[in-house]
């Protein structure tokens, strides 16, 4: 059940583009045609599915507080989590290179369709973001980490597919000249994001606290903070969060 929940949550509620704006650069740059958008989207799913589980293993057995305990009790005090950025990005860069080589060797047809996008992906924020969110949300098992990688990749894929299709059509519309191209794409993405917010009630049945606040990334940190010191409402952030949610409820 938690697999299904995480799956739908990552695709619709915490959609990488619409809720956290990850991978916006390639999203805007490569969404002029549906075919290229599909290629890039597939490559993102693929790379996320590979890198998130690997980084989960690294996080679990190397980086987090006390992760080195398996080496022996004298290592149990180490906390290497400040190294996670550099380790994650190194993993991603190498994995992308490796995947490129493997795909080229074993499936030339797949390589022809994905190949040009793979190098581009190494510096796509969606990929690093996937790993960092996996870390900050404390995904508990390897299976769930894999699930998270695949499903957030699918969410990204759906988003770029939709905007590419809209941009193909919008060429025939009479958009005000200063908005043409980039401007209207931003506004359409904003409107689509508003549309995606309606998925927010999917898991709660729509009657709990506003889930859109959950998916707002600025609150992720606060939520972690809040759950860590439950009840201590003196925390300034916690106060402002509850203030904010009452304001939006009104």
């Amino acid at each position: 059940m938690e697999h299904v929940e995480l799956f739908f949550k990552s695709i619709f509620i915490d959609n990488m583009i619409f809720a956290t704006f990850l991978g916006m650069c390639s999203y805007l740059a490569v969404s002029k045609k549906v075919t290229t958008a599909v290629g890039l989207g597939a490559a993102v799913i693929f790379v996320l599915a590979v890198t998130v589980p690997i980084n989960w293993l690294l996080d679990q057995y190397l980086l987090r507080d006390g992760a080195l305990a398996w080496l022996g009790p004298e290592y149990a005090d180490y906390n290497l989590s400040f190294l996670s950025f550099i380790l994650f990005i190194a993993t991603i860069a190498t994995m992308v290179q490796l995947v490129e080589i493997v795909v080229e060797k074993f499936s030339p047809s797949l390589y022809n369709s994905l190949g040009i996008f793979l190098p581009l992906i190494a510096v796509n924020c969606a990929i690093l973001g996937g790993s960092l969110f996996m870390q900050s949300r404390d995904i508990p098992t390897l299976g769930l980490a894999f699930n998270y990688g695949v499903s957030s990749g699918i969410g990204w894929f759906l988003a770029i597919l939709a905007i590419a299709a809209i941009r193909e059509k919008i060429r025939y519309s009479n958009v005000p000249a200063p908005l043409r191209g980039l401007g209207i794409t931003f506004i359409i993405t904003g409107l689509m994001a508003i549309g995606f917010m309606s998925f927010g009630g999917m898991l709660t049945g729509g009657d709990e606290e506003k889930p859109s606040l959950d998916s707002d990334p600025t609150n992720v940190g606060m939520k972690i903070e809040q759950s860590k010191n439950e009840g201590t409402a003196e925390n300034a952030d916690a106060v402002s969060l509850s203030e904010m949610s009452t304001l939006t409820k009104q």
Binding site: F21, I184, F186, I187, T189, G190, L191, A193, I194
Partner: peptide
């Protein structure tokens, strides 16, 4: 909420 950031930039 996040969508408004996109619209403001637009």
């Amino acid at each position: 909420l996040s969508p408004m950031a996109l619209i403001v930039i637009g």
